Simulated scan of single mutants.
Amino acid sequence: METDWIWGLVGGVLIGTGGAVYLLGNGRIMGASGILGGLVDGSGWKTAAERIAFLVGVVVMPLILWPLYNVGIETHMTKDVWVILSAGLLVGIGTRIANGCTSGHGVCGISRLSLRGIVATVFYILAGGLMLVLFRHVLEVI
Rank of each mutant, 00 (worst) to 15 (best):
D4P: 08
I6S: 05
W7N: 13
G8I: 07
G8S: 15
I15Y: 01
V21E: 06
Y22F: 10
Y22Q: 05
L23Q: 12
L24I: 10
N26T: 12
G27H: 11
R28F: 06
I29C: 14
M30S: 15
G31C: 07
G31T: 02
A32E: 08
A32I: 11
L36G: 14
G37V: 04
L39D: 05
V40Q: 08
V40L: 07
D41H: 14
G42R: 12
G42V: 13
S43R: 14
T47N: 13
A48G: 15
I52F: 02
F54A: 01
L55E: 03
V56F: 15
G57R: 02
V59R: 04
V59A: 12
L63A: 09
L65K: 00
Y69W: 14
N70V: 02
V71N: 11
V71T: 12
I73F: 05
E74Y: 14
M77G: 08
T78E: 02
K79Q: 09
D80M: 03
I84K: 09
L85I: 09
L85Y: 06
V91L: 12
G94H: 07
T95A: 08
T95L: 04
C101R: 03
S111Y: 07
S111Q: 05
R112Y: 01
L113G: 08
S114Y: 14
I118F: 10
T121W: 03
V122M: 08
V122P: 07
F123S: 13
F123T: 11
Y124N: 05
Y124M: 11
G128A: 10
V133L: 14
H137D: 15
I142R: 13
